[in-house]
């Protein structure tokens, strides 16, 4: 733990990073656990891994429940492994809102892939907070990237706002659809069009698949011309038919990103995103520590609760003063502390 002293913690983190970079799956898996728990030790390892991050092709996979995302991801992983690249899969499933527990069954489909040295598969439970989870998954992506996995497939929970977060995280966003999924999916299609780099129409052996693919192509044709038109690939993840074609579409998108300079752009965006996040967290931590050390935090809270101060003006004021190096004291401090 970080609190155990800076030097031993640094040495432990170095040892850990070394094992991880040497391909030890246990070290990678343990790191992801600490990331999920927001343990400070995770940052100690992640800072050492930072130079190694940025090589993997990260594919975010999203789509409605029932579209067959998990089956498709397994099929993609199998196809990738057959061609050579190492693969990490991060699969997210919902936690029960009542108990916090979760049943994670995605590994069932892996079969013999499970023991493939070039594959790493990790199941995540959403733990009731999708926002917080996306942060953990983003760091987990960095961890598997640093560990040398060449392709990273990230699966999200159902459809919803999460696909926007996936597109922040991934180089390529793959949207999975299937025929006959119902009206809510129809409504969601418009939103999916915004984020999709590649469409997969799964269950192509079922009636209606061709029509679903046709609709998407028609909708894509309506908008303004774009530098990259998302391909629509029909396939059956269950039989494996069309999976190779999908993989080629994903690779074409990666090549497009590199050739058009967008790959670097994505890296910068992601760096900005991460830096903003961490800076925000760091500033907040420092500010709270300082206010608490001064003993004024409780007084400010009281002042707001009593409606003596408004939190909008106060937070701006405190931020200004903290950055200028002085926090001052709230007026009426004596009364507030007297309670």
């Amino acid at each position: 733990m970080a609190s155990a002293g800076a030097e031993p913690a640094r040495r432990a983190a170095e040892g850990w990073a070394e094992r991880l970079l040497a391909g030890e799956k246990r070290a990678l898996a343990r790191l992801i656990t600490l990331i999920e728990e927001r343990d400070p030790a995770a940052s100690d390892v992640l800072r050492l891994l930072h130079p190694r991050v940025g090589q993997a092709h990260v594919v975010g996979v999203t789509g409605a429940a029932g579209a067959g995302k998990s089956t498709l991801i397994t099929a993609l992983a199998r196809e990738l492994r057959a061609r050579g690249p190492s693969v990490a899969v991060l699969a997210v499933d919902p936690s029960s809102p009542l108990t916090g527990g979760a049943l994670l069954g995605d590994r069932i489909r892996l079969g013999d892939l499970s023991t493939d040295p070039g594959l790493f598969f990790r199941s995540f439970a959403s733990r009731g907070h999708l926002g917080g989870l996306s942060r953990a998954v983003a760091d987990a992506v960095r961890a598997v990237d640093a560990a040398g996995y060449q392709a990273v497939l990230v699966e999200t929970v159902g459809a919803g706002q999460s696909e926007v977060e996936v597109s922040e995280l991934a180089h390529t966003t793959l949207v999975v659809l299937a025929p006959n999924l119902g009206d809510d999916v129809q409504a969601a299609k418009a939103g999916l069009l915004e984020v999709a780099d590649v469409f997969a129409v799964n269950k192509a052996d079922l009636p209606g698949a061709r029509e679903t693919a046709g609709e998407i192509r028609a909708m894509l044709g309506l908008g303004p011309a774009r530098p990259w038109t998302p391909p629509v690939v029909e396939l059956s993840a269950r039989t494996g038919e069309g999976v190779a074609g999908l993989l080629e579409a994903l690779e074409r998108h990666r090549d497009f990103l590199v050739a058009s300079g967008r790959w670097g752009e994505k890296l910068r965006r992601s760096a900005a995103h991460q830096l903003r996040d961490l800076l925000g967290e760091e500033l907040l931590r420092a500010a709270l520590a300082r206010l608490e050390a001064e003993g004024s935090w409780q007084a400010w809270v009281e002042a707001v609760a009593r409606r003596e101060r408004d939190p909008y003006t106060l937070s701006e004021e405190l931020a200004r003063r903290l950055l200028a190096g002085a926090t001052g004291r709230p007026r009426g401090e004596g009364e507030a502390r007297g309670l």
Binding site: S95, L103, L104, G105, R107, I108, S114, S123
Partner: peptide, 8 residues
């Protein structure tokens, strides 16, 4: 309240 990974 546990997270259960089931292998099949």
């Amino acid at each position: 309240g546990m997270e259960v990974i089931y292998t099949g």
